[in-house]
Simulated assay, not measured.
Amino acid sequence: MSSLETLTVHGLGRVADPYRDIVPPIHLASTFERAADGSYPGGRVYARDGSPAYIEAEEVLRRLEGGAQALLFASGHAAATAVLQALEPGDRVVAPHSMYWALRKWLLDLAEHGRIQLAFYDNADIDGLRAQLAAAPTRLLWIETPANPTWEVTDIRAAAALAREHGAATVVDSTVATPVLCQPLALGADIVMHSATKYLNGHSDVVAGALATREDSPLWQRIRVMRNLGGGILGPFEAWLLLRGMRTLHLRVRAACANALRLAAELEAHPAIAQVLYPGLPSHPGHVAAAAQMRGGFGGMLSIRLKDGEAKARDVAARVRVFKRATSLGSVESLIEHRASVEGEGSRCPPDLLRLSVGIEPADDLLADLRQALAD
């Protein structure tokens, strides 16, 4: 096919006999018949580690990321934890201060119980990262960019080069950027991770995760084992829905990017707002780095900080009419969340911050909703 967009729209474009289905069937089988000699003529043994339900979605993602292989998981967290469970006991992990809060908590718990060594770096500070990698032998560098919920940007190419220099593998959580805007493997990362619940599916009706790898490395083989033995697999219907969602990925992401940029630019001048955090704004500290590694947009996620603090932030969230007050991101509908209260004790999120997942509604409707909610 002529482009990744066309490939994605067609879901690989495979049409099977005898019915010549335009949409692939759902493969529900959990086990597969042996031949009389004990072999498996269909090439499948058991669905936990080899369901044909995953074929199209994994292959679409592999091609979108430009990788060697891809794997689906039961959730984004299952995908991330499979990577970490593939490490040896005591391996050192260097992770960013700003990252998905549940994974950060899990990393801290692993370190507390002696499963890993853990060090943190400031997301955009390459010099600080260099110092952390040089401080002790490191097995894994974790990157999240743009980073939830303040959208710091890490220079993937520079960070991955440093990790390689120090013998560490680089994993990039690219959930917010999506392969439409950024391909971390092409920038030197070893593995890219997605919470496929978010933009890849894009309709708030699937919980899923995914990994893609630049090469079939020993670490990747261990991750395969962790998925199989850990059982963090995706159901056939969810895999089918994920493939359906990805068929409109490019259109949805581009529409969300355009809306988010317009909202960010107009809200930056609003008298009630102290700061708009969005990599597409020249005022954002990570704008130059984002422009260098993201193509066609800066994502659909932004945050606003209110001049009158936490009480005002909570009040604005309570008054919206079009935005939905809900956790998650990356779907067709716009969501708003007072993130610090959701994360709870230990959150690094400023209490005056509202996180906005900008959907594909008309931008005028979204702006009107926020303006009336911000009004005194």
Score class of each variant (00 low, 15 high):
89 P>G: 09
54 Y>D: 00
32 F>R: 11
28 L>V: 06
70 A>H: 03
116 I>D: 10
103 L>E: 08
17 D>Q: 14
25 P>E: 05
39 S>D: 10
21 D>H: 14
67 G>D: 04
46 Y>L: 14
137 P>V: 01
134 A>W: 01
138 T>V: 03
62 R>P: 02
105 K>S: 09
141 L>T: 00
39 S>M: 10
100 Y>H: 12
96 P>G: 04
127 D>R: 11
88 E>A: 12
43 G>N: 07
132 Q>R: 15
56 E>N: 12
25 P>Q: 08
107 L>M: 12
19 Y>R: 15
65 E>N: 05
43 G>R: 09
100 Y>D: 11
75 S>M: 05
102 A>T: 15
20 R>K: 13
24 P>D: 05
143 I>N: 01
77 H>V: 09
75 S>T: 02
89 P>W: 03
93 V>Y: 13
121 Y>E: 03
17 D>M: 15
80 A>S: 09
97 H>P: 02
30 S>A: 15
16 A>P: 13
114 G>Q: 06
99 M>S: 05
21 D>T: 15
111 A>C: 08
151 W>C: 01
51 S>T: 07
16 A>W: 13
62 R>W: 06
38 G>S: 04
118 L>A: 04
135 A>V: 05
93 V>F: 13
63 R>F: 09
20 R>L: 15
27 H>W: 11
122 D>R: 14
139 R>P: 03
92 R>G: 00
114 G>N: 07
113 H>Q: 10
32 F>P: 08
91 D>M: 10
30 S>G: 12
26 I>V: 11
47 A>D: 04
46 Y>V: 09
148 N>A: 11
106 W>C: 12
104 R>I: 01
17 D>F: 15
63 R>W: 06
76 G>Y: 04
120 F>Q: 09
35 A>N: 06
44 R>K: 15
95 A>Y: 01
61 L>A: 06
114 G>F: 03
37 D>A: 11
58 E>H: 00
65 E>D: 07
16 A>K: 15
16 A>S: 14
125 D>S: 05
75 S>I: 01
142 W>D: 09
42 G>E: 15
35 A>S: 09
121 Y>A: 01
67 G>F: 05
109 D>R: 12
150 T>S: 13
125 D>K: 07
149 P>F: 08
119 A>H: 13
62 R>I: 04
16 A>Y: 13
62 R>N: 02
23 V>D: 02
48 R>P: 02
138 T>M: 10
78 A>G: 09
38 G>I: 06
55 I>Y: 13
23 V>I: 09
119 A>D: 14
117 Q>N: 07
134 A>V: 00
35 A>R: 07
135 A>C: 06
36 A>D: 11
47 A>N: 04
79 A>H: 11
20 R>Q: 11
130 R>S: 10
40 Y>W: 10
58 E>N: 00
67 G>Q: 08
58 E>C: 03
126 I>G: 06
140 L>D: 02
61 L>I: 03
117 Q>K: 14
100 Y>V: 10
101 W>R: 14
104 R>D: 06
107 L>C: 09
79 A>Y: 06
115 R>K: 13
138 T>K: 12
63 R>L: 14
31 T>E: 15
74 A>C: 06
22 I>P: 13
120 F>K: 10
94 V>A: 06
120 F>W: 13
19 Y>K: 10
129 L>K: 07
117 Q>Y: 08
